[in-house]
Design a protein around this nucleic acid. Structure first.
Lengths: 350, 350
DNA sequence: CTGAAAGCGCTAACAG
DNA sequence: CTGTTAGCGCTTTCAG
């Protein structure tokens, strides 16, 4: 009945792998019926269905996803491209993405753009360009502005959702950085005059860092004080920078009575520890608020006030929006904004 | 020339996607020639090659990986199944795996087994069972013993490399936990009598935790002291447990002069901080060594001595061994052991 | 060096 | 309800 042209059975390792034809032969039906029994059971008589399901288990048959995907134009795999697979932020993001993908019956293909792409193309998408056909869509996280980004995404030839940024025409899932930064700044302003508030930023090129700085500045203005340049600094997302900023600041002025809004928790942690090492009290002399809500905030003593970013949720929503887009390709562009929440802890007293 | 049966062009979003047939038409050659030009350029005349490559760029053609994979039986995707995508350990592991995969021209499909599998099958492999055909092989990290593991892996129908454990017949990449634990214990024994050394473990079911405990005990024995039950405790990999252990221990005995080997850095961190809170000096009263070499060790004050586990390298090697297995399916089973290195810092004095 | 033809394993009309 | 037929987009003999 079966007539496998090359006469050989496909094997992996030493084990033969059953194909739909094998199942059909064993159940004495056509492959079409097997396919139906598996995908649209209601179209198959109970008896044949039983014979088939028996054959399936006996042979340990499992449909080849590749062949399936080629026909249905759906591989059930979505890509996620991150700047770097590293640290708590991305780790949590991926966790959420993975959970959502799984719940929807999909797999997650990862790629990080910090690794040079093999062929010099699509750096922002972490080499996903080579996955054409393999992935149904892609979630890309963007943290730095790139002039060529649009072209890169376009060339990908797959539905895209942008994470934590906005790119024309694409769905986006973003975090309300401005809102969070505003809230944190207002909290500091409640007890500290605007002229004694400082923003210690991450890389100046980093979009999030910029957004937070902008909101900080705007909030100070609203409070009737236009921030001086030295009230807003940028460098890097690291403990070391937080410490360095603190040392430098102490050299110029008295730290007593100041409040620091750090662009992320690491910076904030650095500020807290360095201030303490210099003999200042936190929060009595120096008040500090971080950003992200990472574990570090709970390790700090006093524990660090922070703006919680829903990291897992960000990953989840990215995948969710992507899959919805796949369902309805012609739906209007979507934009989901996730809100942060201020967590006041010991480091910012009040 | 082309005769696409359904007459429609495949599109993604609004953009048409070119197929090999489109390229062939445009270059006025057969699809076979296009395929050759792309895969075995030396078999094609320079002129046709040029025409084809021109057509390729003009159409923005990129081969469909799915179709390619169906023919070649190689998708260029390898899976990695972790207990959980979370925390520094797995994050680094994935980073290494991703880097290696990319360097070898592959993609990485992730799956974590902490998420219930959709169909109740293969919990250990993070739902990779559904990826049959999509992945060329799988790296699985095992941290808890599972009776059904062998069957689960077998059912997967793809080459497998086991990470951080040994499973009959499969390639394995492991960490020398015993060696690292021995080294750490000897270091503590150098200055502290064996009867005052304690092992504070993670979950008792965790294979790594067990291995470290065993080596700790053996090393004490070699020093002429058979450890009492209270010298080896298990609970969980958390800061909280380290703190709790310390409080409990302080209730029973004087902490002065003891040395603690923590099964991971978090536990170690908990011990250090709690001991300090109870008024003991680290390392003067209590000496502590952690395990893993995570960032937490540098944050601790004094910084935490630890046994560095090459996490990125572990991920790298897992993928490397897997890809080598794919190259030579009949090569003898391989086993790669990665060594740890003791990092002595402030917390263990000397 | 190039083209025709035969599939990879599967789904999807279309007739029965 | 079931079988037949036609491909999905690509690689690979096998003849020229």
């Amino acid at each position: 009945m079966s007539h496998r042209t090359n006469g050989t059975r496909r094997t992996i390792g030493q084990r033969p792998v059953a194909s739909i034809q094998d199942v059909a032969d064993r159940a004495e039906v056509s492959i079409a019926t097997v396919s139906r029994a598996l995908n649209k059971p209601h179209l198959v008589s109970p008896e044949t269905a039983l014979r088939i399901s028996r054959a399936v288990t006996e042979l340990g048959y499992r449909p080849n996803r590749l062949a399936q995907a080629l026909m249905t134009r759906r591989s059930g795999v979505v890509g996620i491209a991150l700047p770097d697979i590293h640290g708590e932020f991305y780790s949590d993001l991926m966790r959420g993405a993975d959970a959502e993908a799984r719940e929807q019956g999909c797999h997650l293909l990862v790629g990080s753009s910090h690794l040079a792409p093999l062929d010099g193309t699509d750096p922002a998408t972490g080499g996903m360009g080579r996955a054409l056909g393999l992935i149904d869509g892609l979630a890309v996280m963007i943290t730095e502005p790139r002039p060529t980004l649009d072209a890169e995404l376009e060339a990908l030839g797959a539905p895209i959702v942008v994470v934590d940024a906005e790119v024309a025409d694409h769905d986006a899932v973003v975090v309300n950085h401005a809102g969070g930064a505003r809230e944190a700044t207002r909290h500091l302003l409640d007890g500290t005059p605007p002229s004694k508030c400082f923003f210690v930023g991450g890389p100046e090129s980093n979009l999030d860092s910029r957004a937070r700085a902008r909101a900080f500045g705007a909030t100070l203005c609203e409070a009737g004080h236009s921030p001086t340049p030295d009230q807003i600094r940028f460098d890097s997302y690291s403990i070391g920078w937080g410490q360095r900023w603190t040392r430098d600041a102490a050299r110029i002025q008295d730290l007593r009575g100041i409040a620091v809004f750090a662009a992320n928790d690491e910076i904030g942690y650095g500020v807290v520890t360095q201030a303490q090492d210099l003999g200042f009290g936190v929060p009595d002399d120096v008040r500090v608020v971080g950003f992200d809500g990472t574990r570090l905030t709970e390790i700090a003593r006093p524990s660090l006030s922070t703006v919680l970013v829903p990291r897992e949720e960000l990953g989840r929503q990215a995948i969710r929006v992507l899959l919805q887009r796949l369902e309805s390709p012609d739906a209007p562009r979507r934009r989901v904004m996730l809100s942060t929440s201020l967590i006041v802890r010991g480091s910012s007293g009040q």
